[in-house]
Write a protein that binds this DNA or RNA. Structure first.
Length: 887
RNA sequence: GCGCGGUUAGCUCAGUGGUAGAGCAUCACCUUGACACGGUGGAGGUCACAGGUUCAAAUCCUGUACCGCGCACCA
């Protein structure tokens, strides 16, 4: 045979991907009469590399897209990349520093942006190529980038619109400041982490009462120079009398100002000493206290986190962490440091730079979210579906307490804010176009948060604001597949933008994937080195294997513990599929076409029924996005039911002389394979196409299904009554074959128990309960690997036979020459006897329960009665077997 | 403090009221005319714990423990 024994994905995958692209199989036609199905890709960072999270996410999308095509939908899977402001800028800055020892300021804004664009040109295509390797069937002719010219205009248009609606405003407020990236961040970009730090207790003297001291606990002594008040709870009896008086601030030592002691409800009497130092410039809560009491704001830090002049001579220029230690030392030297204790608190870290953020007062642009009500309700009221639905609660919670969004970033890479300030009057010009006398104006240097562009993704990629045919046809999109970690960053904001600008929700269903972890449950990260490179895995096992293995271990809504073993399983499965088809090819003969219902054996009927049930299960699981369920069904149906049972049962006919029967078997096999391969296609696009073409299924099939590529082949139909009637299928066929399987299993078990090697052919005798066709006997013989199978309805067992029973009849194994140790055999059978007796006792107990027999449904009752009868039959046989053993 | 998950075979996980399942790992036998990336058979679970509902609970209810996550607080 020229077909290789093992499937070699490397020689197959690229070939078909090119074929699909040449045939324009991925391109969506808005003019098509088919019903529409659409997904927009969560755009990966333009300079990113494919990781396991992408594999999971995009495999799911590809499965949905391919399934929809086979369901006869016109599919648009719209791809693209995100400019990823901070991440990309930081990457280029790092390279610049490493290679040329330059900062972005050395280059200047324009030159630096040129460098970023060059970087984007060089690296931007990598992740796209990687997605193609994975088999993603995106419409690449529509690929978008969040900083394309048209996209940029959309972003600006939205900014201007929201500004004019009064929803975007500029203000000096407390923001999260990243002292490394030197930009403001949104609340969502701040990750709280528990930190081991110190709680410093120091005392301040009350100005009006020399000798009276207040003890204060703080984790940040370096901000003492920025303290402009001391606050206590108004109901705190310990300090009530001091309210309205003043305290002497110890730092900076050259400026020990008198600061007021104020009363504020915010202070927790139980915490520390119940006295709070108020630093309005460096803490959000303190800032609010400051507003309530009209306090001065003294910022003691530079943007990069070092102490400025206000911090005093002793601390000036130091980094905030160094200054913290030094400030404590200064307090100690002054004799006012009472104690320091170990303390664990949560500190907000910059998601990107990984350093503690600094709450900082600064002038920023803010957005009051639009269309909040509609966006909130469409999810809680179920118009938009979440899978799994528990994320509704998280969404609901966030939408309820929603805060204005700080959208300006002090970066260069991004959408520069379309606002100009008049150099003389300070007047504001907010428009897509710069003002006519541009030289008299200065443009706002800030850019927008990346998410303030990607929240427009579902419609800005489809040509909005023009009413394009694409937009009309494919918006709202059908499904969104993403991680729950960006439910606020992206999903919620897209919903709001969708309602505000399209008047409708942007997608109908949201599927939230789990997070991919390593097999020890740790998050995958570069620093841990536990993140396998998907491209390596594809090279080693094939993309189909990676897809199948990943999907098989990715349950809906739970994290995925990734193990390379899963990919190995995927590869093994592809190989099984390959060899099953190879076996068919080796039988020769073109597809024999029509199945003749009259020639169907019980096994044929059984596998047809099992196929129908598998399709039913798969359809039901797809409807609920239960992909693991689908993979399990596919695995079970194909490997266990088709390969292990059906194909084996066929061998007697295929190696026999009845040409008609043989041809009919091949017709059944072809039918099953053509259906199975189609069922596999969404998961295993490459091998399924290879086999579809290789087996000749792309021509006209008897059931009238086919096509140039499997991509547009009809999705298999679950069997209906008409089908069952045509082939004469009914439940009893299934039961008979399952009884046969049970008989075979027990027969094989007998072999094993008498230590008959697997390859040794031995004779069996079968005593059927009813008429037993010769063809059935041949199947039984081959499944048992028997030398011969004597069918004898009148067989009278004497001594020297082991036997087992089944509803079909009894199977005897002559023991002559097989048994070495009769005593051991007897004791084995006696043990078996005890087991059976225990089972009978169990069933009897149940049947003796009056409540049970009166109240259980009839079917359940019958089942138990039947079970008892079965066990009793077994008992009788086991006893007879012991008899038969003789002495 | 509030909320959401999870706890089933050595491991990873299916299983939403009716005889506990799969894959991997393991043990035994087998390179038998698709496949050793394979075949056959076996061993291995008081379904975290305690109550409750029910004729019947891994499954429904209440509570507890442990693990993970999110939000709030965080001087």
């Amino acid at each position: 045979s020229e077909i290789p024994k093992a499937y070699e994905p490397q020689s197959v995958e690229d070939k078909w991907y090119e074929f699909w692209q040449e045939q324009k199989c991925f391109e969506a036609d808005p003019e098509s009469p088919k019903p529409a199905y659409s997904i927009v890709i969560p755009p990966p960072n333009v300079t990113g590399m494919l990781h396991m999270g992408h594999v999971l996410n995009n495999t799911i999308q590809d499965i949905l897209a391919r399934k929809a095509r086979m369901d006869g939908k016109e599919v648009l899977w719209l791809p693209g990349t995100d400019h990823a402001g901070i991440a990309t800028q930081a990457k280029v800055e790092r390279e610049l520093k490493k290679n040329e020892k330059l900062s972005r300021h050395d280059l200047g804004r324009d030159k630096f942006l040129e460098r970023v664009w060059a970087w984007k040109e060089e690296h931007g295509g990598i992740i796209i190529k990687q997605l193609q390797k994975l088999g993603c069937s995106c419409d690449w002719s529509r690929e978008r980038f969040t900083m394309d010219e048209e996209y940029t205009r959309c972003v600006q248009r939205v900014f201007v619109d929201l500004y004019k609606k009064g929803l975007i405003y500029r203000g000096k407020r407390m923001v999260n400041w990243c002292p490394v990236s030197l930009t403001a961040l949104s609340d969502e970009e701040v990750i709280p982490k528990p930190q081991n730090s110190f709680l410093y207790y120091f005392k301040v003297e009350v100005a009006e009462e020399p000798g009276t001291f207040l003890s204060i606990a703080t984790t940040r002594p370096e901000t003492i120079p920025g303290d402009t008040a001391i606050a206590v709870n108004p109901t705190d009896e310990r300090y009530k009398h001091l309210i309205g008086k003043h305290a002497i601030r110890p730092l900076p030592s050259e400026n020990q100002a008198k600061i007021p002691i104020v009363a504020d409800e915010h202070i927790d009497k139980e915490f520390g000493t119940g006295v709070l130092k108020v630093t309005p410039a460096h803490d959000k809560a303190d800032f609010e206290i400051g507003e309530r009491h009209d306090l001065e704001v003294i910022d003691v830090l530079n943007p990069d986190g070092t102490v400025n002049d206000f911090g005093g001579e002793a601390l000036k220029g130091m980094d905030r962490l160094k200054a913290r230690k030094r400030a404590a030392e200064l307090l100690d030297e002054m004799g006012v440091l009472e104690k320091e204790e170990q303390y664990q608190n949560n500190v907000g870290f910059s998601e990107r730079a990984g350093v503690p953020i600094e709450p900082r007062l600064s002038e920023q642009w803010f957005l009051k979210y639009p269309s909040v009500e509609a966006s909130h309700r469409c999810v809680t009221e179920g118009r938009m579906k979440f899978y799994p639905d528990r994320w509704i609660k998280t969404y609901d919670h966030w939408m309820t307490g929603i805060q204005d969004w700080c959208i300006s970033r002090q970066l260069w890479w991004g959408h520069q804010i379309p606002v100009w300030y008049h150099k003389e009057s300070g007047e504001i010009h907010c428009d897509i176009e710069p003002p006519a006398d541009e030289e008299n104006w200065e443009r706002d240097p800030d850019v927008l948060d990346t998410w303030a562009s990607s929240w427009l993704w579902p419609f800005a990629t489809m040509g909005w604001p023009e009413e394009t045919s694409t937009l009309k046809r494919f918006y709202p999109t059908t499904d969104l597949v993403t991680g729950p970690d960006i439910i606020f960053f992206w999903v919620a904001r897209m919903i709001m933008a969708g309602y505000e600008y399209m008047g409708d929700l942007p997608f109908q269903n949201v599927y939230f994937t789990g997070i991919i972890r390593d097999k020890k449950g740790r998050k995958m990260s570069k620093s841990l080195g536990n993140s396998p490179d998907p491209l390596d895995l594809i090279a080693k096992y094939g993309a189909d294997a990676l897809r199948f293995g990943t999907m098989r271990s990715a349950p809906l809504g739970l994290d995925v513990l990734f193990d390379e073993k899963d990919v190995e399983l995927g590869r093994n499965f592809c190989n099984k599929l390959w060899n099953a088809c190879r076996f068919r090819q080796m039988q020769g003969g073109e597809s024999e076409g029509e199945i003749d219902p009259k020639l169907l054996t019980s096994d044929d009927k059984w596998i047809l029924i099992r196929l129908g049930k598998a399709i039913d299960e798969i359809d039901a699981d797809f409807a609920q996005y239960r992909f693991t369920g689908v993979t399990q069904t596919l695995y079970r149906f194909f490997w266990t039911e088709y390969c292990d049972w059906y194909v084996e049962s066929c061998k007697s006919a295929l190696y026999g002389n009845d040409e008609k029967l043989k041809a009919n078997k091949l017709a059944v096999i072809d039918f099953i394979l053509s259906n199975a391969i189609r069922l596999f296609h969404p998961f295993l696009p490459f091998i399924s196409e290879e086999l579809w073409q290789g087996m000749g299924f792309n021509g006209d099939l008897p059931e009238g299904q086919g096509g140039q590529t499997i991509m547009f082949a009809n999705w298999p139909k679950a069997f209906d009554e008409e089908f069952a009637a045509h082939y004469g299928l009914d439940e009893s066929d299934e039961q008979v074959v399952e009884a046969k399987h049970e008989l075979v299993r027990q027969g094989r078990n007998l072999r094993r128990e008498f230590n008959v090697p697997s390859n040794q052919k031995i004779p069996f005798i079968f005593k059927p309960n009813a008429e037993f066709p010769e063809a059935e006997a041949a199947v039984l013989q081959i499944l048992l690997n028997a030398e011969s199978l004597e069918v004898n309805p009148n067989f009278a067992s004497g001594k020297g036979y082991a036997h087992i029973g089944s509803p079909l009849g009894e199977l005897y194994l002559p023991l002559e020459g097989l048994i070495e140790d009769f005593a051991a055999e007897r004791s084995r059978l006696e043990k078996e006897l005890q087991k059976i007796e225990a089972e009978i006792a169990k069933v009897e107990k149940k049947l003796a329960n009056k409540n049970f027999t009166e109240r259980a449904p009839k079917e359940i009752l019958d089942e138990h009665v039947q079970r008892k009868a079965d066990w009793e039959t077994k008992l009788a046989r086991a006893r007879a077997a012991i008899e038969a053993l003789g002495d």
